[in-house]
């Protein structure tokens, strides 16, 4: 484990998570959530859990993003709160 790389990845993960909660446009929020999944996946690889990283990349960044995009297209794009 390289702690500098860990720190950078953790910082980017937290930044993506905060951005996904804060932003008003829900489609932007979905894309930020996808980026969050990507950095999470890199973190898993860095910690040696390749199997978990695989699942995170396939499901977190791939399938759920598409499902969220479909839901945003079916409902409203602007956040209500």
């Amino acid at each position: 484990m390289i702690w500098q790389l860990d720190l950078i990845l953790l910082g980017l993960t937290v930044a993506c998570a905060l951005g996904a909660v804060q932003v008003r446009d829900l489609l932007t929020s979905v894309v930020l959530l996808s980026a969050f999944s990507l950095f999470m996946c890199l973190l898993w690889i860095e910690m040696g859990a390749v199997d978990v990283a695989f699942t995170e990349a396939a499901v977190g960044a791939g399938v759920t993003t598409v499902l969220f995009v479909v839901v945003v297209l079916k409902t409203e794009r602007e956040s209500q709160d």
Binding site: V50, D51, F54, T55, A58, V59, G62, V63, V66
Partner: peptide, 17 residues
């Protein structure tokens, strides 16, 4: 090796998506 039924199934399903 890493991977398995769940991951492979998710990849095949996302190809159809």
């Amino acid at each position: 090796s890493p991977g398995g039924g769940f991951q492979g199934g998710a990849i095949i399903a996302s190809s159809f998506i």
